[in-house]
Design a protein around this nucleic acid. Structure first.
Length: 447
RNA sequence: GGUCCGGUAGUUCAAUCGGCUAGAGCACCGGCCUGUCACGCCGGAAGUUGCGAGUUCGAGUCUCGUCCGGACCGCCA
């Protein structure tokens, strides 16, 4: 029998701490990102939990070690922290470096990387990149994109928690889909049929009855056979739902506040990554302009001559035109579009009593792409049952969901942000697969 | 599912009208270099041009088939 305690754990030394440890001898571990050999010795760039660290080793007495040293080895280094001026801003810290006394090899790779991991930019075909994902993600720029995505998700959590929301976890194996339609993955569930969740919508609404304000960060699954740079079949949905709203604009207001918190978190925590990726954070001003779909079509027509009047939705070109207009006219990289027609929105969306045929729903466009869908939901039981019938759905099959309405719900609404999409737009990355750790699309199921 | 584009060394790309031994950068290997930072210099190895057939004196290049991939559209976040 052993007794395990928490004493004696050596914490990781952070980049920030290293910067203040000039003159001290430290033992750190990491993986070799790249080696630059010069006549007198070598610069060894180590990949650590929070960034790259430059180590310096002279030849004298170290010939054998330097001879054995290769990229991607796991090593433990003992050395002295000294001041340095490192031009490469992707190295963090770049004000100090480690003068190595000894290197211990902890683990050796079986093979060298099949691609050039040592360069500033990982110049790979997207397919090669994704096939080699366990390796390619180790490149500083690839890693930086994920770091930004995770920081965004983390900020979404803390922002909403700060506003009184409770984080919930809802099932991803479901008996019915939230949106209906054929775009849902069917799976075998023991001797029954089940589906992968295409949205946590129903459970969020049930959560409103419990906690009033809830949110979830989780995967959703879409079986649509789309083949574009902005679609994947499993993505991370940043969802929230809130009760006692007086209108759907309140949901939009909360989104503005959340986005501002997220951008501030990125500025604070990802400055190294953002600089490495040459990304410009958007400014979230006090207000974000909002237009109805009808107005949006009119603006598009005036701005570009493209006539989408009467179309029930925006198309990708129109989204770009509208964003350009919003930036030009309102100095905003964001634009809300509201009042999509009833038939284009899911059955749980509340109709606008003042504009029959349209809904109290909205999309948020950002840098030419739709990154959010949200709106006010139906809270009245009878109204919801009637709308289901109008949509040709059988309320009986939604019985368990309708318990939420049956036993009373306050007026409520919410939204969902596509994490990979908004990250891609923040970073100016064309393909959302690059802001996804292991993307799933029609053709890709591995790694 | 539709339209368009592509597949050449480990990798990213060249190769003119169908014509000489299919080239270059990086990675890799050998040598040199006392502060690099996408280090530099010298040398080396590395190819079934996705696969199969056809046309031709001759095919990476043209034709057909096939496999794989990318961009865009529909739909959506």
């Amino acid at each position: 029998m052993k007794s395990i305690g928490d004493k004696g754990l050596t914490g990781l030394i952070s980049a920030g701490e290293l910067e203040k440890m000039t003159g001290e001898t430290v033992t750190i571990h990491g993986m070799v990102q790249r080696i630059r050999r010069l006549g007198w010795g070598a610069f060894i760039i180590l990949r650590r939990h929070d960034g790259l660290l430059q180590c310096v080793m002279g030849n004298e007495g170290n010939e054998e070690t330097l001879d054995k040293l290769e990229v991607e080895q796991s090593v433990e280094v003992v050395g002295t922290v000294k001041k340095a001026k490192i031009k490469d801003t992707s190295i963090h810290p770049n004000t100090v470096e480690l003068h190595v006394d000894s290197i211990q090899f902890i683990s050796l790779p079986a093979e060298l990387p099949p691609v050039d991991m040592t360069k500033k930019v990982l110049d790979l075909h997207i397919d090669t990149n994704l096939d080699l994902r366990p390796l390619s993600l180790r490149h500083p720029m690839e890693r930086a994109r994920l770091k930004v995505a995770e920081t965004f998700a983390s900020a979404f959590r803390s922002s909403l928690t700060g506003m009184g929301f409770t984080e919930i976890r809802t099932p991803k194996i479901c008996s019915v889909g939230a949106e209906g339609g054929a775009n849902i993955f069917k799976i075998k569930y023991f001797d029954r049929e089940a589906f992968l969740a295409q949205s946590p919508q129903f459970y969020k609404q049930m959560g409103v009855g419990v906690f009033e304000r809830v949110f979830e960060v989780g995967p959703v699954f879409r079986a649509e056979p789309h083949q574009t740079s902005r679609h994947i079949n499993e993505y991370t949905s940043l969802d929230f739902e809130m009760g006692f709203i007086t209108g759907f604009e309140e949901v939009m207001s909360v989104e503005i506040a959340v986005l501002r918190d997220c951008m501030e978190a990125l500025k604070r925590e990802c400055s190294v990554e953002l600089e490495m990726l040459n990304a410009d954070l958007p400014v979230i001003s006090e207000t974000i302009p909002s237009v109805t779909l009808e107005e949006a079509h009119r603006i598009t027509l005036e701005a570009s001559g493209k006539d989408n009047t009467g179309e029930p939705d925006l198309d990708p070109k129109e989204e770009k035109i509208l964003c350009a207009w919003s930036l030009e006219k309102w100095d905003s990289e964001f634009l809300f579009v509201t009042h999509f027609p009833t038939e284009k929105r899911p059955f749980y969306t509340m109709d606008d009593p003042e504009n029959p045929g349209t809904t109290l729903g909205f999309d948020l466009l950002f840098r030419g792409l739709e990154v959010t869908t949200g709106g006010q939901r139906i809270h009245d039981y009878d109204v919801q049952v009637e709308k289901m019938k109008a949509f040709g759905l059988d309320p009986e099959s939604f019985k368990s969901y309708l318990q939420a309405h049956k036993y009373g719900l306050p007026p409520h609404g919410g939204l969902a942000i596509g994490l990979e999409r908004i990250t891609a737009r923040i970073l100016g990355v064309d393909n959302i697969r690059l802001t996804t750790m292991f993307p799933r699309d029609v053709k890709r199921l591995t790694p």
